[in-house]
Amino acid sequence: MEITHYLGLAAILFAIGAATVLLRRNAIVVFMGVELMLNATNLAFVTFARIHGDVTGQVLAFFVMVVAAAEVVVGLAIIITIFRSRRSASVDDVNLLHS
């Protein structure tokens, strides 16, 4: 087994996450798709760190996690706010800015 197979797995997970963002309408599921994409990149980071023998890749993955955590807090708060006012968690309903 080649180490690059990890990268292949990361690519597949990333694409699935992206497809989730495109295809699902529930904002929470869409959000989980985004998280999946972030995790896929983390896997790629970790793999590259191993390939190059440099822990900086892991540090970057760490930063991604932290930022993702912050993003989740704000994103979910926004979803809740929208849900409160519109009784819906569908991203298709949030197109008020479009005339």
Binding site: A11, L23, G53
Partner: peptide, 30 residues
């Protein structure tokens, strides 16, 4: 969405397959 998802898989895998990686050194040294 389906097209883009599959396309992305193909493109990313293609790029990975295309790329020449240096021999992996592992993290034991660092």
């Amino acid at each position: 969405g389906v097209l883009l998802g599959l396309g992305l898989v193909v493109v990313l895998l293609g790029v990975i397959a295309q790329a020449a990686f240096p021999p992996a050194v592992g993290l034991a040294a660092t």
